[in-house]
Each structure stands twice: as C-alpha cells, then as structure tokens.
Nucleic acid binder design. Sequence first.
DNA 1: GATGAATGAGCGTTCATTCAT
DNA 2: CATGAATGAACGCTCATTCAT
Lengths: 214, 214, 214, 214
Amino acid sequence: MVATNERRAREKARRRQEILQAAKEVFFEQGFHQATVDDVSAHAQVSKGTIYLYFESKESILAHLLLEGLALLYTQLTAACSASQVTAEECLWRLARAYLDFSQNNPQYFRLMMAFDRGRFREQISPDLYEQILAQSMASLDLVTQAVRQGIQDGDFDCDDPQLAAGALWAALNGVLVLMANPLRRQMLAVELEPMFEVTMKLVIRGLRRSADR
Amino acid sequence: MVATNERRAREKARRRQEILQAAKEVFFEQGFHQATVDDVSAHAQVSKGTIYLYFESKESILAHLLLEGLALLYTQLTAACSASQVTAEECLWRLARAYLDFSQNNPQYFRLMMAFDRGRFREQISPDLYEQILAQSMASLDLVTQAVRQGIQDGDFDCDDPQLAAGALWAALNGVLVLMANPLRRQMLAVELEPMFEVTMKLVIRGLRRSADR
Amino acid sequence: MVATNERRAREKARRRQEILQAAKEVFFEQGFHQATVDDVSAHAQVSKGTIYLYFESKESILAHLLLEGLALLYTQLTAACSASQVTAEECLWRLARAYLDFSQNNPQYFRLMMAFDRGRFREQISPDLYEQILAQSMASLDLVTQAVRQGIQDGDFDCDDPQLAAGALWAALNGVLVLMANPLRRQMLAVELEPMFEVTMKLVIRGLRRSADR
Amino acid sequence: MVATNERRAREKARRRQEILQAAKEVFFEQGFHQATVDDVSAHAQVSKGTIYLYFESKESILAHLLLEGLALLYTQLTAACSASQVTAEECLWRLARAYLDFSQNNPQYFRLMMAFDRGRFREQISPDLYEQILAQSMASLDLVTQAVRQGIQDGDFDCDDPQLAAGALWAALNGVLVLMANPLRRQMLAVELEPMFEVTMKLVIRGLRRSADR
DNA sequence: GATGAATGAGCGTTCATTCAT
DNA sequence: CATGAATGAACGCTCATTCAT
C-alpha cells in the first residue's frame, strides 16, 4: 500500500513538527533548563514516551530547534541580498538589517543561537548534529563574506582578507544585538538598539572603504 | 567592646572570602551546574549550613564571583589607560588589549560575564544584586567612553555621541571574543583570535577618526 | 480446506519457534532483565505486536524457554541411562554425569532452572504454565528414582524410600553445581567442580549401598 | 562535647538499623526487584533522601542485609557445635540441624543467600562489599571443615580432603533446602523437608565413615 | 494475521535548602 | 556562630503492553 506508507510518513513528519513547535514554546517560555520533558509532552498533547520516539534526548530537541532557527535566518538573509544591481556596501547593510530584524522578530531563536556556544551542550548531542549546526551557522556568515569579496572586486573596499572582515562585521553586529538584548542595560546605557546598530555599522563599513572614499 | 566587634567583623569577612574563593575554584573546575554546594563546603572546609549563613543561595555565590571578576577587569582596564600623555586612540587600543588579555587569562570569569545576560540568572538573584552587577559592568564601559570623549576633545575623533561609539566599540570587541571562544568555530573560520581582534579594532577605530585622518 | 488449515497451523508453529529461538539468543546474550521485547522482536524480524500474538508476556516467553531447557535435559538424561545391561549404580553415575555435562554445556538453561524457584516468577506466569514446568522437572527426577528402585530390586541398594533417596541425590548434585557455578567461590574454596562432583557422588552412592558392599 | 558526639553516633547507628529493618521487611514482602526505594523509605518513616545518607544504593542495602543474615547464621552455627565432648559426627549433625533451623526460622534471609550468586548483583555493589559477603559465607563453611578434620583426626572418618568433603556436605544440604523450599514441589514429590533432610545427612555421613564403621 | 505508533506509570538518584542542637 | 542530618520535590528516560489500521 503505497498510499498508506505515504500517509504514515506524512503523519510522522507532522507529529514531529508538532513536538518541535511545542518544545519551542515551552523552552522559550520557561528556559531550557527549567522546562521539563513532561512540560513539552503536555504542551504537545502526546505522552512522554512519544517524545522519545521522535527525539533522542531533550538536548536533541533543542539542537533541532536551533537548526530550524538557523535555516530561517539563512533564508531571510538570502532574500535580503538577492536583489541584483546592488552595491556591495548596500548588500552588507541589507544583510545586517535582515539580521537585526530576525533578532527582533525571533528573539527566542536568537537567544538560542547566542546560547549555543555555551554550556555542556556540545557534549550532550551527537557530534554529527553539532557539526550540522556549526555548518549551518557558517553558511550565513558566507553570505557576508561574499558581499565583502564583491566590494573588493568592485574596487569599493580596501581589505586584505574578506573572510576576516566579514567575521569582524558579523561579530560586531552580534555584540551589539546581545548587548542591547538586555532591557536594563539599555536603560543604563540610555541608548536604543536602532542608533547603536546604525553607529556600529557605519563605523565598520567606513573602515572597509578605500581610503579615498572614506 | 569595639575591638571585639571589629575583630568579629574581620573574621566574618575573612570567612566569607574563604567560601567565595573555594566556590571559585570549584565552579571553575567543574562548572557551575556540575558543582554542588557540598563540593564548595568541603573545599572551603566549612559545613554546608555555614555556606548559607554567608550567601543566600548557590546562584548568589555565583553572582558575587561575577562581581569579583568585574572588579578585576575594571582594575586591569584602569591600569591599562592610566598612563598620562597618551592619545585617545592609543588609549582605546590599550583598553581593548587589556580586555583581550583579561578574556584569555581569565576565561572562566569571561564566560561568566558573557553568560550573565542569558539564562534565568536574573530571576534567581535579588534585584539589588543584579543591579550591582550591571552597574559594575557599566563602570568599565565608562572608561571607554572617557577615552572617546577625550579623542573628540582633542580633535582626533569625529563622533556625535561618545557613549554610543564606546558602546559600539565594546560590543564589537565582545562579539569577537565570544565568537572566537569556540575552538571548532575558530577552526571553521580558519582564523585566529589575534588577527580578528586587530582587524576589528582597526575597522572601528578608523571609523572614529576625523575624515581627514582616516 | 484441510490442507490450508494444516499449513496455517504449521506456519504458526514455525513462527512461534522462530520467536522463541530469537528470544533465547537475546536472553542468553544479554540476560532476561537487560533484554527488551524490542530486542527480541528485532532479532526475530517480526514486529513487537506480533510477539504478543504468540506469547502472553515477556515472562511467558521465558517460561517456555525453561520448558525447552527441561525437555533437552530430559532427553539427555534418558539417553544417558538407556543402555541395557547396566547396574543401577552405573546408571546413577551416568545420570549424574549427564546432568553435570548439561549444566556445563548449557549454563544459561541451567541458570534459568536454578532461578526458577526464586523470584516473583511464579506470580508472573499462568498457574497452568507453572505446573507444566514443575511436572517437566519432576520427570527428570523420576529417571533417578527408577534407577534407585532398580538398585533395590537388584539387591545392590539398601534404602527404604527410593523417591526420597533420589531426591536427596538430586538435591546434593544441584547443590554442588550451584555452589561451583560462582567463579569467585570456587576460587575461595580452592576446589574445582570435577573433584567436588566426584566426591559428592561417591559419598551419596556409598551411602546407598547395602552395608556389606560399602 | 564528648557526650554529644557519642549520642550522635548512637543515633546514627540506630537510624541505620531502622532503615535496614524496614528494607528487610519490604524486600521480603515484595521481592527485591518489585520493592522500590520509596517503599523502603515510607516503611522506615524517613525521607527518600535519608536512605541515601546511609546507603550507597538499593543494591548496597541488600548486600548489608545479606551480611546481617550471614552473621546471624554464623552465630547460630557456632553455638550449635561449641559443646565440648562431642564426636565429629554429632557435631556435623548439629551444624546441619542448626542450618536447617536457620533456613526455617529465617526463610527470608535464607532466600537472600540463595539468590546471592545470581543476577547482576556482583556488578552493582562495591567489590569490597562483595568479598566481605563471600568471606563471611566461607566462615560458616569453615566450621563444617573443622568438624570433618576432627573426625579424620579421631579416626572416625575416612576422607582425603576435608575441605572437599565439607563442601560436598554443605552443597548437598543447600540443595535439599532449596528444593524443599517450594511448596508445590514438595507436594509433587510427596515428601516433607524433615525426612529428606534426615536421609540426605545419613547418606553423606555414612559415606564419610571408615569402611569398618559404615 | 501483522504492524508499529502510542502509551504512561514507574524509578533510582541528586541536591539546594532548612533547622534543631 | 556553626553544624550536618534530614528533607522531598524534581527529572530524564525506559519499556511492556495495547490497539487502530
């Protein structure tokens, strides 16, 4: 019965998505450590055992959420700079803006990504899964690297190592987004995210330009 | 008996320091989650109950360690740019370098700081303590702001909002240090911390300069 | 269709045997508690649900394995003393030796038998199955009883109650085999199974002889 | 405060005994595997955590119960054969009878001992504890060995290896006690424990005698 | 008959915190 | 002040069994 098999596979994929969605909500609501697998199963309206039919462990669920978030980010970044006839500088601005938007529209995914490097996380998921995540996150960075490379080719940027420059830009942006993610800190700094973002980008992009254009 | 009271207070402070020191060693050795209060009390050679005479909770101990780390960082930053007769730009370089050194020499403290904004940390300590930490971390940022302000005053920098610029510089640096803290990521980027640091600082500082000097 | 029914029955019996065989391999490999029904079903290449079409429970499978073991033992005992023209004493020796061999060649079956009386086993299988097992194990004992009876008839043994004497011999042998099944105990006793077996049998058989022959 | 320390130690020992006693009752009522640590803690009227203050694991509790049982048996065996002016044969009878009595008066301890060699028990307690148990059980066997040796010295027994003979006697007795521990089996055999015991002992002891005395 | 997805009760162990002494 | 015995809630994961298809 081909039809049956197909439907089964569809059902299974759907169920998996439901669990992932439930886990997302629960983890984001309570935090990963606070949340229990019971919470997730209750929220997904399946039994606890079912969870383990679809995921190896609690950590594995988190990893798959992360992959989802990274894929979403990658899609939005790709969309942002796909416009033809755009200068490299404009492309960098669009990528950065897309990242900013992503962090604001999907703060939970963003927090997840920022938390990724920390903790015993690495030791608790399969090495394979871990590398997938790293690879996926590097894919996004590559978009930035491409733009920088384009700028050099076009003679707009003065830069020895595009990879390095892209990393610096990315890191700077990350730093801003993380710093400003804390409301109390924003308050003490007496600065909002938007101006901070603008300033940082301006600083870095100006630094990239050929001396004559700065 | 004033003398007695004083001695008592001294004793108490000393005991508190011993516990904090023990906790530092235990937490840094095993990680905060892995380590137990029993471990700390054993290491401090006091009973478990005593721990709770000096600290409200396990998280509170961590928070106080964080305060210690921030104080240490502040000290080192102050030392770095205290030299008179130094240009603002040089001062920024020194501050950045001092921060870099701190992150490398005290990776555990650094991780603690980076982890601070995340997690349920905020909800697990007293608001008062939380604000202390924020204030302390802002003090370091102020050193950067002062340097930028000096640069503007000296006519070296072209910048509307020193606070904003300092925040941008700080955030960028943070981003780099966090990004490069992950070995596997360093490997995938095929870049070492030092060049990344240099490039980022150059980019940002160039961006700060008056157009003519860029 | 008689033929069809027959084939169906044959098929069913074969499938049942396959499951039993798979269970045997899995249980013997991993131990009963360690092994899961999933392991068995995977090994038997049937679905987990199918297992329960053929057996009531995990414990029931074990019970049927036990029956198999007992049947095997009975076969080997029968073979051992079937030779005509053999004295009762020689027959007892052969039975004992066959039991010893069985315990060494099928240690897993033997352990299963020894474990039978203990544990909650009795309460976890149907009373019917339980009695089957007891009856089957008694069948083997009957072979011993027959030999003793023969010895009395032949005037070789001096014994009031053949059943009792057979039980005693059997029990003694069991005791030896169980005692010596533990390697560390063998080591502490500084005795090997073979001499212990010989001594025990000699003691008991001598005790059976008419005074004049002892 | 010496008095305080002493009282504390006493209290601690008493609490430990209470837990052990509760565990004994619970394990014997429900069987070791069925019983949960919750059951034990409820029965002992302490919290579950307290259990783990006194014992490393569930298995460790069992091991200590076993040690207790073995010590009790040893005491009773020692008492049984301590009478002066008793022949070796009489001594063996007394030891055997004491063992029989023990198995009847402390059936739970006895079952525990019989179950000891089986299962994953060995791997779940500390090697040290495991050896203690073996040593303690060997101590009892030594009493039998001494009696046999005495019999040889007195010229009553004809036996090359006292250790071996003692082992054989002990094993035979064990075999009988285990065999007869099952009511249904007793029923099928149509024999009671007492006659079986007598017969077995007579057989074995007769086998030990010098030919002339048999 | 056969499947395999779903169930959900069950468990040993840990550990931050409290409190009587 | 200091102790350390006692607490008890919490948790990730398993697995024998069921049942709709």
